[in-house]
C-alpha cells in the first residue's frame, strides 16, 4: 500500500494543498513552530549513515538536515501525498544524497534492517493502523537503529474539539462525525508506550509528552485549520460547507480570551536510542 490510488482523505487533502504548505501563514502557525523546534532538536550522530524521514511533506526538514550534515550520509524521505512529493523533489534538486519515495508508515518502501536513524515530525498520528506501522518501523531499523517520532497526542486541540463537535454533528450526522474524528489517532502517552513496547526494548525506548497552549487570532488559526481539517470534512455537502464554516469560525472566535484564541498542542515524542 502506498499513497497513490488510496482513498485516504487526509493524503488527498495534503496533496491538493501542497502548494500553500510552505507559505508564511503556515510556517508561523502553532504547527510551523512545533515542527521547527522538533527539527532543531534532531542531532545526527557519526554512525547515522542511512537517515529516513517518514511523512517528509515538502522536504523542508530533510533538506535542512542534508545541508547541515557531513558527506557520506544518505537521506530518504517517504511521503504518500503526490503533491507534496513533487514539491519535495523540486526543493531537493542538486542534493545527490537525498531521494524521496512514495510510501507511508503502514508500508515503508525500505529494506529490512537498513536504517540507522529514522525520524518523523507531525505525521504518525495520521497512520491508519498503528500496530502495523510500529511493525514496519521495527522492520526497517537496524538492530541498533535509532528513531525520533514527534506526533500529536490525545488532547491536541481539545478546546476546538469541544466547541466544534455539536456543529459538525449538525452538518455531518454522528456516523460521519465519528469516522472523521477517527482519521487522526488520539494516543495517550500510556497507550503510546504500550504500543511501542510491543516491538522495542524498554531500556532503549522513552516516550515523552508536553502540553503547550498557543494563542493566536481567528485568522491565524484559520490559516492552518482550513487546510489541515479539509480531509476530515470533505464529506459535508458543498452547499452546506459555507454555512458550516461560518458556524465553526464563530465557535472558535467564542474561545477568545483578551482577543487571543487558545489551542493546546499535546505533543508525544517516541525516542529510541541504542
Amino acid at each position: 500500500m502506498n499513497g497513490e490510488g488510496t482513498e485516504d482523505p487526509i493524503v488527498r487533502a495534503y496533496s491538493e494543498r501542497a502548494e500553500g504548505y510552505d507559505e508564511d501563514a503556515n510556517l508561523r502557525s502553532c504547527w510551523g513552530r512545533v515542527a521547527e523546534r522538533a527539527l532543531a532538536s534532531i542531532q545526527l550522530r557519526e554512525r547515522h549513515r542511512s537517515v529516513v524521514e517518514v511523512g517528509c511533506g515538502t522536504a523542508r526538514g530533510l533538506r535542512e538536515l542534508a545541508l547541515r550534515s557531513r558527506r557520506g550520509v544518505e537521506f530518504t524521505g517517504v511521503e504518500p501525498a503526490a503533491g507534496m512529493r513533487e514539491r519535495a523533489c523540486t526543493a531537493l534538486q542538486g542534493l545527490e544524497n537525498v531521494r524521496v519515495l512514495d510510501g507511508r508508515f503502514e508500508s515503508l518502501p525500505l529494506g529490512t534492517g537498513t536504517v540507522d536513524y529514522l525520524f518523523s515530525i507531525l505525521a504518525f498520528h495520521w497512520t491508519t493502523d498503528v500496530e502495523r506501522s510500529v511493525d514496519e518501523l521495527a522492520r526497517v531499523l537496524k538492530p541498533d537503529g535509532e528513531q525520533d517520532l514527534f506526533f500529536t497526542g490525545r488532547d491536541t486541540g481539545r478546546e476546538f474539539t469541544a466547541r466544534t463537535t455539536p456543529i459538525f454533528l449538525k452538518y455531518m450526522g454522528p456516523t460521519l462525525l465519528l469516522q472523521s474524528a477517527g482519521l487522526r489517532k488520539h494516543l495517550t502517552r500510556e497507550a503510546t508506550t504500550r504500543l511501542f513496547q510491543r516491538k522495542f526494548s524498554c531500556d532503549r525506548l522513552s516516550v515523552e509528552e508536553s502540553f503547550e497552549t498557543h494563542h493566536d487570532d481567528l485568522e491565524g488559526h484559520w490559516s492552518w485549520w482550513a487546510s489541515r481539517a479539509a480531509g476530515h470534512f470533505e464529506r459535508i455537502p458543498p452547499d452546506k460547507r459555507r454555512a458550516c464554516n461560518d458556524e465553526i469560525r464563530e465557535a472558535i472566535r467564542g474561545l477568545a480570551q483578551d482577543g487571543r484564541i487558545p489551542y493546546t498542542v499535546h505533543l508525544l515524542r517516541v525516542r529510541l536510542r541504542s
Binding site: 469541544a162 463537535t165 455539536p166 456516523t175 465519528l178 474524528a181
Partner: peptide, 30 residues
C-alpha cells in the same frame, strides 16, 4: 451525549473503545 456537549467527538471515540473492550467486540461505525 454529543448534542448535549457531555462528550466531544474524541471522547466519544474513547467511549466506543471502552465499550469494545467491555464487550470484546469491534464496533463498526458504518
Amino acid at each position: 451525549l454529543i448534542e448535549t456537549g457531555v462528550l466531544d467527538s474524541v471522547a466519544f471515540l474513547d467511549l466506543i473503545a471502552y465499550v469494545e473492550q467491555l464487550s470484546d467486540r469491534t464496533i463498526d461505525l458504518m
